[in-house]
Design a protein around this nucleic acid. Structure first.
Length: 463
RNA sequence: GUCCCCAUCGUCUAGUGGCCUAGGACGCCGGCCUCUCACGCCGGUAACAGGGGUUCAAAUCCCCUUGGGGACGCCA
């Protein structure tokens, strides 16, 4: 049987870190088994679902590169859901209930008071009611025995049927409830493996009851533990960025996020770095961890810097444009491609990279000079040296790193100087700041004319 | 409150009864490299929650305690 997995987000919010991870696991499992990966938008909550969020989720899936074979919208499948509800009622596996939400709430209170789990007490079970205003359809769940399943990551999970109640299948407004819709959809889409968050384990037993009432085959379940914040609480907005697309805006590469997410709750021996192909090859459900994991931005940052080093300068240059343009810079790709390699070993994010390279993108006359740096390094002692060096450089015809190094070596030799003495002053003169990539590579990228202009400007500044 | 699940360094994890005086990675600390900042390289710090069993042998199996997470909707 071919493997079919699905990711079923509800468009009541953006695609968040946790969702992205279960989507990834579902995707990997399908790919590994040459199966099918389905994206199903569970937009049945008319109140809170929006088309904008649906688009946002689709975009995020695309950015992450999680391609799916089929796309469904749950809201368009209500007739199918209804068919199954009718079938259950016809077979006596479900019944109409006239209890109002207030009455049910009271039943819950009573159960709580008795130290029991809050649940519906089954009052309309045997009333044999038909449809009517305000009425819902409930599943006639077994009163005794236990329901269990073997979770692919947690092992056997059982629950006494007394703990479960007659869950609602069809709301009084005629729409199907989540549990019914999920079961019918998973069933009709031929899902073989339901990979989802830990928070669904309790629903699983209820869903299995529906499968059984329907006499349908039950898929395999794999419940992935939650992702926690640094305080070990379920990851939420107060822990910072949650949305996948915000990570994009923060300058993360999709492969870094994917790699990080994969290793969060899953492992393959001691390996840390995985390409997508490797992930597909090595992924397995049994190596998923059973316990929740804490989201660690530091490690994500490390992976991101790793992938920045691995990426081609062309790709990074292209991506950088998105960060540079809002800042008012519009460099040519060719020029950017020359700058990028100088930052690949240094930057942890694209955003950081873009910010640090500003001085490359301005002309000498509009360059910002850090006042403190100027005061500290452009001293009367070094000015003459910079002046002479500028003259030497001006004679250079091939303005390359090697040639520049030679000029400097010669000058330092003649004057019995250490490079250290003029390095920082030179840096400040060229970049306006005290931190930058190596000076020779920086000069080569800036080009002769710009270097001469900047030295000129610095010399004027210092006097 | 009731039910379900979980428990190895600060964090992500390896470990599937002897190979464990517990390995890797991030972070942190120190050193090397060095024109600044990084990168890189080398080294270090640091964990089997506690208590009972089972066994010749337990991080690994069982029980209890503690701690943590999740779920109890006409939300998904």
């Amino acid at each position: 049987m071919t493997v079919v997995t699905r990711f079923a987000p509800s468009p009541t919010g953006y695609l968040h870190i946790g969702g992205a991870r279960t989507a990834l696991f579902s995707y990997l499992w399908a790919r590994k088994n040459q199966g099918k990966f389905i994206l199903r938008i569970e937009d049945t909550d008319q109140e809170r679902s929006t088309p904008e969020m649906t688009q946002a989720i689709l975009k995020a899936m695309e950015w992450l590169g999680l391609e799916y074979e089929e796309l469904y919208f749950q809201s368009k499948r209500q007739e199918i859901h209804q068919e199954y509800i009718d079938k259950l009622v016809a077979e006596g596996k479900a019944y109409w209930c006239e209890c109002s939400p207030e009455e049910v709430e009271q039943m819950r209170q009573e159960a709580m008071a008795k130290g029991l789990k809050p649940k519906y007490n089954g009052r309309c079970r045997e009333k044999n009611l038909g449809p009517g205003p305000g009425r819902v359809v409930r599943l006639k769940a077994p009163l005794e025995g236990e329901t269990s399943f073997v979770d692919l990551v947690k092992g056997k999970i059982s629950v006494q049927n007394q703990e479960l109640d007659d869950l609602i299948l069809r709301r009084s407004d005629g729409t199907p409830t989540y549990n019914l819709a999920v079961v019918v959809d998973d069933l009709t889409m031929g899902i073989t493996h339901v990979i989802r968050g830990d928070d669904h384990v309790n629903n699983t037993h209820r869903q299995i009851l529906i499968y059984k009432a329907l006499n349908a085959p039950i898929p395999q379940f794999a419940h992935v533990p939650m992702i926690l914040g640094p305080d070990k609480k379920k990851l939420s907005k107060r822990h910072g960025a949650l949305s996948v697309m915000v990570y994009k805006e923060m300058g993360f590469l999709p492969e870094a996020l994917l790699n990080y997410l994969a290793r969060l709750g899953w492992s393959y021996k001691d390996q840390e770095i995985f390409s997508k192909a490797e992930l597909i090859e090595k992924f397995s459900l049994e190596n998923l961890s059973k316990s929740p994991s804490v989201f660690d931005t530091e490690k994500l940052l490390w992976l991101n810097s790793h992938y920045i080093k691995e990426s081609s300068r062309q790709r990074l240059a292209q991506l950088l444009l998105e960060f540079l343009q809002p800042e008012g810079f519009n460099p040519s790709l060719a020029y950017l491609e020359k700058i990028v390699p100088l930052y690949q070993p240094r930057a942890k994010t694209l955003k950081e990279m873009a910010e640090q390279m500003h001085f490359f993108l301005k002309e000498a006359k509009e360059l910002d000079y850090d006042a403190k740096a100027v005061e500290k390094f452009l001293t009367p002692e070094v000015i003459p040296h910079l002046q002479k060096i500028r003259e030497k450089i001006a004679t250079l015809t091939n303005f390359e790193q090697k040639a520049l190094e030679n000029i400097f070596a010669a000058y330092l030799e003649e004057n019995q100087l250490k490079f250290k003495v003029i390095a920082q002053p030179l840096r400040v003169a060229l970049t306006g700041q005290t931190v930058s990539p190596g000076l020779f590579e920086t000069m080569e990228v800036l080009g002769k004319e710009e270097v001469l202009n900047r030295l000129q400007r610095a010399l004027e500044l210092a006097t």
